[in-house]
Amino acid sequence: MAIQQLSVFVENQKGKLLGTVKALADAGINIRAMSIADTKDFGILRLITSDNQKAMEVLADESIVNTTMVIAAKMEDRAGALYQVLQILSDAQINIEYLYAFTASEDFGAYVVFRVSDAAAAQEILNAHGVATLDDADIIEI
């Protein structure tokens, strides 16, 4: 299955990102993967954590937290690996809104997180082409 990503509204003000990250640290939550989109008025912090439920609880007091389903696809460590995955999605007419990459500590594997219009369809087509994807249980392990 696809995995759950948290999106946090971070005001474009001194100390706001620090406060958000501190709340996670204090709650003992490990950040598995992250990216920040900065707009003129605010930032969007996207997180995949060791405990999304708890993360939402500690952040809800401070800011807005939304959840989105994203795909985390394992990349082979070779030239052309990302190209191959993108080609599969492109052929299936699946549009990508954004993506970011992270490395898992367990197997040192490279993963790319895709935010797409239809996560379930993307998951299905990638798996059908032999591309491994993570599910929520994997996130706790890696």
Binding site: Q5, S7, F9, A37, T39, I44, R46, I64, V65, N66, T68, E97, Y98, R115
Partner: peptide, 8 residues
């Protein structure tokens, strides 16, 4: 929250 999107 329902108006906030993860997409810029």
């Amino acid at each position: 929250p329902d108006q906030f999107s993860d997409i810029v």
